[in-house]
Amino acid sequence: MRVLYDTYWWTSGPISGRVVVREILRAWRDEFPQDEFVLAVRPRDRAAVAAEFPGCRQVRIFGRPHGIATLTQYAFHARRHGVDLAYTQNFAPPGVWSAIFVHDVMYQTNPEWFTRPERAYFWLIPFFARGADLVVTSSQNEARRIRDHNPRLRRVEPVGLAVASALTDADPVMPEVARGLDGFVLTVGRLNVRKNLGIALSGALASGRLTPQRPLVVVGGEDGRSADLPAGTAWAVEQGLIRFVPRVSDAELAWLYTNADLFVCLALDEGFGLPPVEAAHFGTPVVVSDIAVFRENLGDHAIYVDPHDVEAVAEAVRSAPRDRLDVRGLFPTWHNCARNLRESIWKARQNLET
């Protein structure tokens, strides 16, 4: 196949978006070396993309937001270069065979979790996705949600996600937030209402497991509709029971995952939910919300809890095992995801031809 591949989010946008764009392209190239890529690249990313994919033809993409660029420019480049399909993020270029990756449609089921500007942008995605010949997403659970709320879409298939190679290949480095500690409980994610951080903080504090030498380390910055934190948060920070750090490097995050006593994620919903999968990959026991997507992705390798029940969270944190997990080889790789994507594209195209 000759593929117009969307790299718009190579160096900007949500971390999950950047990871998916980069990792899928790398694995697709490795798994299917006979395929040819025409890379749609913003001018500022040309050198970085060319350094990793020398010899791949590039076409320049201008303007923002991403949706406008996709709708106005990608179809022109697809026709000009005679590609078999365009593979893009969220928006389908009109008039060409396309497969698009949609992370989630939680804004359709729970609009109250998002700001007005977010909703205004996100609500365009399902409308323009109708032009796609194939919609792919991360999990079976999210594929069902997309189908249920968007019956006019032609085909929706899950392809999976995996732990970023930037984490798995990193040489772990201790971040400053962990210096002098005997251990710690960890949570990672954007600080918004959907991540349910308030219950996580309240439950961890009520567990009695936290001390100044074994605090809760919270990695993540504010994003979207902010979370309401419990009244005792400021006191807990002053006492050293909770430590906030807005961001860490990949090497520092790998160290935190490797050395945490326990990982906690009480998100109210997720399209996939990479952080607990990342923590389990590094051997850290995990306590997570009892939601379908975590059951799908973590199976028996997690402790599940009602994300609204502070006492249940406290008991789960208090009684979580101290032993490290051994889940080597149990989670998909990016090569699995690339094969799933390529197979879904092939089947969709065969179905069209017949």
Rank of each mutant, 00 (worst) to 15 (best):
A75M: 02
D45A: 12
V102F: 09
E52C: 05
F62L: 15
H77I: 09
S98W: 07
I100L: 11
R80C: 00
I100V: 14
R80G: 08
G82M: 05
R29Q: 13
E36W: 02
D35L: 07
V96N: 05
V38M: 05
F53I: 01
F91N: 05
G82Q: 15
V83P: 05
D35W: 11
D30A: 15
A47N: 02
Q89T: 13
R60W: 02
C56S: 14
P94T: 04
P94L: 11
Y74S: 02
R46N: 03
L71M: 14
P93E: 09
Y74E: 07
T70Y: 02
Q89D: 03
G95V: 09
Q34G: 09
Q58I: 04
P54Y: 02
G67E: 04
A69G: 13
Y87Q: 09
F76T: 10
A69W: 12
G67L: 01
E52P: 06
D84S: 03
H81D: 12
D30W: 01
F32K: 14
V49S: 06
A48P: 04
R42F: 03
I68T: 09
A75Q: 05
I100T: 10
N90I: 01
D35M: 08
A48G: 04
R42L: 13
V49P: 00
A86N: 01
R46C: 08
F53D: 00
P54L: 09
A47V: 14
A99E: 12
R44A: 09
R42D: 00
R46K: 14
F62E: 14
R60V: 11
Q89V: 14
F37V: 14
I61T: 10
F101Y: 15
V59F: 12
F76H: 15
R79F: 12
Y87R: 05
R64H: 13
G55D: 10
A69M: 07
L39C: 07
I100D: 02
Q73K: 12
S98C: 12
V96K: 04
E31V: 14
I68M: 11
F62P: 03
F53C: 06
G82E: 13
E31R: 15
V38Y: 05
A51T: 02
A50Y: 05
